[in-house]
Design a protein around this nucleic acid. Structure first.
Lengths: 330, 330
DNA sequence: CTGAAAGCGCTTACAG
DNA sequence: CTGAAAGCGCTTACAG
């Protein structure tokens, strides 16, 4: 059966294309009997209006972009689950983009926006370039997720990174750690920097001096965790407490420590961010700062849709609760 | 700066919209000096043609859908990496869709296709309904990945599941296992069924009888692995060798076995499919049948693009090499 | 309540 | 080599 367009359906139903369009878009100004008749034909031929034409005409795509750094990290899976769950009740559709192998995330977004392919975007843990963001007049079509830029009119959803990091560091210190390290994310990540501040604040309060070497930057991968730990160890830096920026990275750290026969949880205590299944399947189970990705995803989507639908809607920053999930590494 | 359209750019450049279009689309029939001039204006205003209008006009969207069951399983990340890598050199763009929370995968695809939003799709490990597929006249715009349907004109890329499973089972038997179980995927999954056949074929050859209870179906999740293992144990089924349909599921199996103090690798040997980082970070490291997701992704994309571009191109089935990666569970 | 007609922003035969 | 004009498939004021 060939694909039909409005014109053909209109002819088949013996009405104008305007009427078909009205019925399809639930315009109330249609006689009930006409509506029924049209619906019959529409269903009979399985007619679906061409989205391209529709979007072109209405200047809305009802498509949102979710940009994640990589699909490799299960933490993003939780966020996407939350987003998918909520988007289901809206008129919008979501497409997922990954930044790996591509040019700058901001460019992808701007291109898609310029060419009218999307109405808005959620940037998940994306290292946003502040300078690029400034050029966008209206930031109502963006929501940042896990990241934020202060002093700018832009909405975001995340945990209180500074506090979470402070609390975790405190736990390490109170359980006896004296030599602490923080395995940070990339330097550009504002969340990671906030966590560094919380870490340092706590060290200051307890009068523990940490030299610059105790913070090591790197991507949130297993390999990077392994390498960072090796680097610390090879440099003969003393350590008995480690704060790690992600589950995945912590997995690499544990790999290294086990290989070198450290007694994890005793000689070395460890706590990390995220709280995905990775922290649970590893032996020993990792004590982790759970970020409720599912909720973060849901809230991000709600926020974005509200901003797109309601021009009065103001920028919001939503802080969701984190929680320390006890494992065997602390 | 307001968004400009061809008409405005044409006026600015002092040429017709046709010429702008020709320059943008690299049509050779443009005087070099005109081209240069137009390009200058185009770049000056950062003009990008509206994709909706372009696609509507050309009846091509140059967008491909990659449908995965869930973003939770890192194995799919590898496939997506492969796809992304290859798509970069083509005119196409890829959007990722997940089936969780949604109606039937086939419907999503058909809808997007009907409404001209995509040109084709790669179904990754999707449980395709054969009956629905039959209704599609031309299956050139589909490539199956990890799954396949036999006796139908449709391309696919996967490992030799029967053989891989046979080999793994053989390894279990040759290392002394006498009571074997297979923790299968969903019943609808043809790959999983092929693996079952390989498993059974091997048991037959070694004259080991396996009753129906030794194959347990369930989704590829940690929870399902844990529950299946518990079920087997609770039923007092004897087992000393387990073949598992995925890394993630094996993680759950190991969780259960450790909890019950089995000596994994000794009392119980285990081998699973996939070969993601999950099999490496778990203690003990899992012996796994590595499926080269990255390559599978690359090949799938190449195949799909070839089929879309070249109407002469015939259906193909590509079998990629698997490899058993030794861990500590066998 | 309904239809004729314009127009969204492109591309592409067609004519020159 | 270039432009005027048609048309992709919709939706939506406008008129009745």
């Amino acid at each position: 059966m060939e694909k039909k367009n409005v014109k053909e359906i209109a002819k088949l139903a013996g009405v104008s294309t305007a009427t078909i369009s009205r019925v399809i878009n639930n315009n109330p100004n249609v006689k009930e009997s006409t509506r029924q008749h049209v619906l019959e034909i529409v269903n009979k031929y399985g007619f679906k209006p061409d989205r391209l034409a529709k979007n072109l005409r209405t200047k809305k795509s009802y498509t949102l972009l979710v940009l994640i750094p990589t699909v490799e990290n299960p933490y993003f899976a939780e966020i996407i689950r939350g987003i998918n769950e909520k988007v289901y009740n809206t008129k919008y559709e979501v497409i997922i983009g990954t930044v790996e192998h591509k040019r700058n995330s901001m460019e992808i977004f701007l291109d898609l926006l310029k060419t009218n392919q999307i109405d808005g975007a959620i940037f998940v843990s994306s290292s946003i370039d502040k300078s690029q963001l400034i050029n966008i007049k209206d930031k109502k079509n963006i929501v940042l997720c896990n990241e934020y830029i202060e002093g700018m009119d832009i909405s975001y959803v995340c945990i209180n990174n500074l506090l979470a990091s402070y609390e975790a560091t405190k736990k390490l210190i109170e359980s006896g750690c004296k030599n602490l390290c923080y395995l940070a994310g990339r330097k550009k990540s504002i969340s990671s920097e906030k966590r560094k501040l919380g870490f340092q604040k706590c060290l200051d309060e307890y009068d523990i001096t940490s030299s610059a070497e105790h913070v090591i930057y790197g991507p949130n991968s297993i390999e990077s965790g392994y390498e960072s730990m090796k680097k610390i160890h090879d440099s003969n830096i003393k350590f008995d407490g480690i704060l790690v920026n992600s589950d995945l990275k912590a997995a690499g750290v544990i790999q290294y420590l086990k290989q070198k026969d450290f007694k994890i949880g005793e000689d070395v205590k460890l706590i990390c961010f995220d709280g995905t299944f990775v922290s649970e399947i590893i032996t020993p189970k990792i004590t982790t700062i759970n970020q409720p990705g599912y909720i973060i995803g849901q809230k991000s989507l709600e926020l974005l849709v509200n901003q797109l639908e309601d021009s009065e809607c103001d920028f919001q920053s939503i802080i969701v609760e984190h929680e320390i999930k006890k494992g065997e590494t602390l």
